[in-house]
Design a protein around this nucleic acid. Structure first.
Lengths: 340, 340
DNA sequence: TCACCCAATGGCAGCGCTGCCAATAGCCAG
DNA sequence: CTGGCTATTGGCAGCGCTGCCATTGGGTGA
């Protein structure tokens, strides 16, 4: 009997267990063990039980690396996202991970930090694991990224943006339309001197599209962006607070501000609360994403809710499926809130 | 010449490229290709260039599955965490992922949803990928989880809790001490009728330890928890808001409330702001974690900052190193804020 | 000049598993 | 009874790569 229960420390380990150890212990062939462990092919109940007992007794954990190599079909799905701390992507992950596990897959992920070159590099390292699918944020990628993804021969899901054509599966919503909705909403509430607070639009292409849609629609309504504060770094509550302060400093007569997202907008709202600026009477604020913190703030933020978790779930499901290529638009929901 | 640049769609793919295709194209042996691609062993400059050119021309992406199987040393590191949407773990991931990538590793992750049975299952699937290291939240695991981790013969880092002994590497801080600090702080500011709002302590063991430390210290100071609202689900801003409302409804004379974490505390703060409860004059609020949103709220929250990103970074580094087993305590920082 | 050493290289076994095929045994209709 | 089936099983090649070993072709010091 293997005194496996105690006394071992990381590192001191006998040689690794293989399927043939289990086969020997159970008195069957390797193929039978494999069949039992994968639940494929026909095995007698007796053999099955013997194998299961032996595997449990030995503490055998199958080696998926070997299994994948032998069977060509990997059970890994790669996720390439710009950030984990941004709740948007965390929500996507939290939607995708359980679905993938439920389908017997494992999630591998990498964080691009909104950098297209890094994205390219990371896509390459991900593909080296021969995943069965790849989920990647956005539809805009470097040329080499695109050819690698095409050449990989696997399902690709591009998420969170439906404004440009995708390679295979696209799950998301129109950022352009989100910008337009926001402009229409502010205008319909009588706002005329509208400002914008956003972060680096070069890197965050989806925010750039919202900005574009917003400006388009304003122009169509005979309005225009009165002022804009574009901050050089990534979005955060702090940036929104300071950005709004700077914007109002320069253009004190604005009657509304559109933020690139809820993080920034919450920062703006906090600024107003701390400085006694009446929201929405004197200044309307509008965000984007529909975060919890925005909904639950003392004054609920006007924003647009994006079904991020759902996007993660759908992308995970689709990437493991044989559904046809195409665009899956999950839509957007305007949250009127109380800041406009 | 391979017209590889366009016209391919996911799915229609010639047979996969292998190292021997590259070898043939470059007119060298497979071993040489392998040496070039891994930068190991000596290769003439001429051969190196030929190989690199051939690989690039063919669009070859090495197969890490095969490489791992052949070399026994995997380049995967597994992360098992309770949640991704909880910023705490997202921060850990965002600290760990870049470090792992920098060391040539890939991160695989799984989400336990604070469920020890699921954790056990997920640890098993993770180990099936023969990772070179495993990072797991907390130091309390099921017996089978423990023996699997011990038996895996890899580095294990247990994070975010140093209150119980670990298997190999432990990176975190004392949750007990965090609870004690909070109790001392509230007491030192003259608070005497102290309540608690928390979530399911059965599932979140670290929150339970803070609660324990908090109560201990109160007793040591001749005080005690006047009332507690334990909510059955996971923490969220909403839960904190509703929890505080319920608590005050029952015990309107409390002069301070300790929350299991900042999410709940922010919810509490929002409740107070929306209902005109003067903070901290009439009611002091104390959270835990030091989130951005807490620091930047109109009234900065009194809380304890946990260096989560750093923990992710350290765990990643240590798990890939040969440093001795041990406890790495990163400490805690009391943020006085303005709600106590 | 010769024995020796070393950089550079190719060949090939084998990592642990799965897919395929052949072998065996039991069973039933003819 | 016998051939034909099916259910069950074991053997073994091979997935693509790396580790190890053998080989080659020069340098080098004595």
């Amino acid at each position: 009997m293997n005194s496996d229960d105690d006394g071992l420390w990381a590192g001191d380990r006998q040689q690794p267990l293989t399927i043939s150890d289990v086969a020997k212990a159970a008195g069957v062939g390797e193929s039978t063990v494999s069949r039992v462990l994968r639940g494929k092919g026909s095995v007698s109940d007796e053999a099955r039980e013997r194998v299961l007992a032996a595997a449990k007794h030995l503490g055998y954990v199958p080696n998926r690396i070997a299994g994948t190599l032998a069977s060509a079909g990997s059970k890994l799905v790669a996720l390439v996202i710009p950030s984990v701390t941004n709740i948007v992507f965390a929500d996507v992950l939290s939607g995708a991970a359980p679905i993938l596990n439920g389908l017997g897959h494992q999630a591998v992920f990498a964080v691009t930090d909104y950098d297209q070159e890094l994205e390219e590099e990371l896509i390459e390292s991900m593909l080296a694991w021969r995943p069965s699918g790849l989920i990647v944020a956005g539809v805009e990628h470097s040329g080499r990224s695109v050819s690698m993804m095409r050449g990989a021969g696997i399902r690709i899901a591009e998420i969170l943006d439906t404004d440009s054509p995708g390679l295979d599966i696209v799950v998301g919503y129109s950022n352009l339309e989100a910008g337009r909705m926001s402009a229409r909403f502010l205008a319909s509430r009588g706002r005329r001197k509208i400002g914008y607070v956003g972060h680096d639009l070069q890197r965050d292409r989806r925010a750039a599209k919202r900005h574009e849609g917003f400006c388009q629609t304003l122009l169509g309504l005979g309005l225009h962006l009165a002022d804009a504060e574009i901050l050089p770094s990534l979005s955060s509550i702090e940036l929104g607070r300071d950005g709004l302060a700077a914007l109002l400093d320069r253009s004190p007569d604005l009657d509304a501000v559109y933020f690139a997202n809820d993080d920034l907008a919450i920062g703006g709202l906090f600024h107003c609360m701390a400085h006694g600026i009446a929201v929405p009477e004197r200044l309307a604020l509008m965000g984007y994403n529909g975060l919890d913190v925005a909904r639950l703030a003392p004054r609920p933020l006007s924003t647009i809710r994006t079904p991020r978790r759902l996007i993660g779930e759908m992308a995970a499901k689709l990437v493991c499926s044989r559904e046809p290529s195409g665009v899956y638009d999950v839509g957007l929901e305007l949250i009127e809130g109380a800041t406009v």
